[in-house]
Nucleic acid binder design. Structure first.
Lengths: 200, 200
DNA sequence: TTACTTTTGCTAACGGTGTTAGGTAAATCC
DNA sequence: GGATTTACCTAACACCGTTAGCAAAAGTAA
């Protein structure tokens, strides 16, 4: 009885069709523009059939998030394998991570819940400048005091902020169960590392 | 002729009423739950009056984003002023930044476009584990090789990932005009700093 | 006070969204 | 061939942001 199998195959095909269509939309117009009605039109089925394949809209986005993590992992493994000693491996992983993010912006945004009503931060929120000055001033003082001519304050400012924002936003996503004590330690460790690097 | 002034005052009052109501909603149910219709009901005015005070819904969120930056800046200035030498200042700023973020989650999410359809990353996406193992392995090797007993691999993993994510997401928000060359440099600088810190 | 003008705020609609209930017609099974 | 399951659709519900157009109130000037 190949009927059941054929049906399963057809169902799987439709599922893939939904995902392909949805992915095209996300790539072209961003994830907020994704709509079940537009998908249903593109696949030439009515809206409720989508619910036979995905519990809801979020489940479709989640599927992409999963795909994104799978792809990222693949890339990182590949990058790591090319190197032998751990320091180079970390460097390679970092590089691959960066490349993945900007070659697959849609994935990355989906994976980490980026992208919002707020447009460019720079243009809309002048207060950002005050923050920048605030952080840059002590950095510049340290650079001067330690006579590190080649150290770029602007660069260090970005680095400093990134560490902070990265820590915060990763903890915020991970939400509840992440141990509080650990996270404060991570902050201290990262910041003291940054400072040491700026001094020595 | 105090009439014009009274009207201005009343208009300002209504504006504040809108913001207060909206903020309450954001705090209670998150920024996605904010709706003009619910605001209008709460302030006991019809929906279109909101448009006399804000260009659209986004403008309301943007206002909060601005408030958030103002508050953050205030906190950081305060933290910085308490310290004298620049290293301590940076430490204090980092600490205040962290505290601000978690004492004002709603602000922070609004300011940096966090929060999305995706629920907990941990539960939904098992691929995260693979990533973790991947990064942690070379870190552990380095810790062993350098005989740094007190270095915590788990902690360092968090730190490493945070640096990466922070750099990426800040660059992604700032979008277009950020110089590419600078950003790659920031990555290199931050990662090499991390590695140096792990070695020495 | 009356007549005119501006402001204010409303109703109602437009075009969207995700989600679900309920029915019909086709496909499958006995 | 008749019964039953499955596939699929229509239509609705309950929302959403946004805008046009109108009525009533408030202010202005004679």
């Amino acid at each position: 009885m190949g009927i059941a199998e054929r049906k399963l195959r057809q169902k799987e095909e439709l599922r893939i069709m939904i995902l392909d269509t949805a992915w095209q939309m996300v790539k072209q117009e961003g994830w907020h523009a994704l709509s079940l009605r537009k998908i249903s039109e593109a696949i030439e089925y009515s809206v409720p059939v989508i619910y036979d394949h995905f519990e809801n809209k979020e489940a479709i986005l989640l599927e992409f998030s999963r795909q994104g993590f799978a792809l990222l992992t693949k890339k990182l493994i590949h990058a790591k394998e090319k190197e032998e000693n751990p320091a180079s491996q970390l460097q390679a992983i970092a590089d691959a991570y960066w490349n993945f993010a900007f070659r697959n912006k849609e994935y990355y945004q989906l994976m980490f819940g980026l992208g919002m009503p707020c447009c460019d931060l720079d243009k809309c929120v002048p207060e950002k400048g005050a923050f920048r000055n605030l952080v840059m001033e002590p950095i510049e003082r340290m650079i001067k005091a330690n006579g590190k001519k080649k150290a770029n304050a602007c660069l260090k400012y970005h680095s400093f902020w990134s560490v902070l924002h990265g820590l915060v936003s990763i903890k915020m996503m991970g939400s509840a169960h992440a141990q509080d004590t650990l996270n404060k330690l991570v902050l201290e460790d990262a910041v003291s590392g940054f400072i040491k690097n700026l001094e020595g």
